[in-house]
């Protein structure tokens, strides 16, 4: 019995130290994504622009904020919210162990405690121009260029399609030149329009599919550098003019360091660590005392 108790204690210590150790390695994930400015910039081959609308459900309609995020093509949806947090410099979204989204931008403060009463972040897809309540896992879905993703914090909702939607028209934030899921191949079309060399006629390229993406204007807007687009799959946002630097857009001024400060800000420093340390000490002392007592008896 005493041996098992010792293993139990050891495992507990390992658990705590594991949590401590992986604190430093937190800041991965989002750094691979670059971001474009507010209204989405022109599309780039190898990347997908996703408009994320987050509405915390409080105050007026101005609480619904649309952010354009550029992530590598075919990224999982989970990258989108993290990239948004990195772009805005807010705290990374937190999840419960079930994968349930707890907070966006540290809202709500109660984290996942209120989910029992039906309060949750409802997920909507606005790609079709209207908000459709999503019943798929938005984090394992592969994103396409021009996706509009809506998050609305619902207080005591039903968990069904009737729950309140983000208070913002999805059609107004969707980039007009979206490629959808059928983006043109990396090789630039040779017979392009009158644009710069290497430009791609987005309308012509995606015209073959019956996609509902509104590319009727037909203007060649996706001007890319074929060398970057093909070689790295990295690309850069065409209109911003900033160089693609490690995947993080220079214009935003948001990089891994911001995320790091937010991650550190969550644990609010020394006093919390002191309290946790005292409790760990109590646990070790009590466990050792129980161990000694039971061993002396046996």
């Amino acid at each position: 019995m005493s041996g098992v108790l010792a293993w139990f204690l050891l495992g507990f210590l390992a658990l705590v130290s594991m949590a401590l150790a992986s604190m430093g390695a937190l800041v991965v994930g989002a750094s691979a994504a670059s971001a474009a400015s507010g209204p989405c910039a022109a599309p780039v081959i190898g990347q997908a622009r996703v408009v994320v609308v987050v509405d915390d459900g409080e105050g007026g309609a101005d609480h619904a904020v649309a952010t354009c995020v550029v992530v590598p093509r075919g990224s999982k949806g989970s990258l989108v919210l993290a990239a948004r947090a990195a772009r805005l410099g807010t705290a990374a979204p937190s999840h419960a162990g079930s994968g349930l989204l707890c907070t966006i931008d540290s809202f709500p403060a109660s984290q996942c405690a209120d989910t029992g009463s039906g309060s949750y972040w409802a997920n909507f897809s606005g790609t079709d121009g209207v908000w459709n309540y999503s019943s798929y896992n938005p984090f394992i879905r592969r994103v396409c260029d021009g996706d509009v993703e809506g998050w609305r914090y619902v207080v005591q909702g039903t968990g069904a399609a009737g729950d309140p939607q983000p208070r913002l028209d999805p059609a107004s934030v969707r980039p007009a030149d979206a490629w959808g899921c059928d983006e043109p191949s990396a090789a630039p079309a040779s017979g392009g329009g009158a644009g710069a060399p290497g430009s791609i006629d987005a309308a012509a390229a995606s015209g073959s599919s019956a996609d509902a993406s509104p590319t009727a204007d037909g203007s060649p807007s996706g001007s890319i550098d074929p060398a970057i687009g093909v070689a790295g799959g990295q690309g850069r946002t065409g209109s911003s003019g900033a160089s693609a630097n490690d995947g993080v857009d220079g214009v935003d001024g948001v990089d891994a360091t911001v995320l790091a400060t937010h991650a550190a800000g969550g644990s609010s420093g020394g006093t919390a660590l002191l309290g946790a340390g005292i409790v760990v000490a109590i646990i070790v002392v009590l466990g050792a005392a129980a161990l000694v007592r039971s061993r002396r008896r046996a």
Binding site: A19, H95, A109, S110, C112, A113
Partner: peptide, 17 residues
């Protein structure tokens, strides 16, 4: 009173007392 009794799974954080 608002204490977080079920800490989120991600991001990882030092357990709060």
């Amino acid at each position: 009173t608002g204490a977080v009794l079920e800490p989120p799974a991600s991001p990882l954080a030092v357990p709060q007392l």
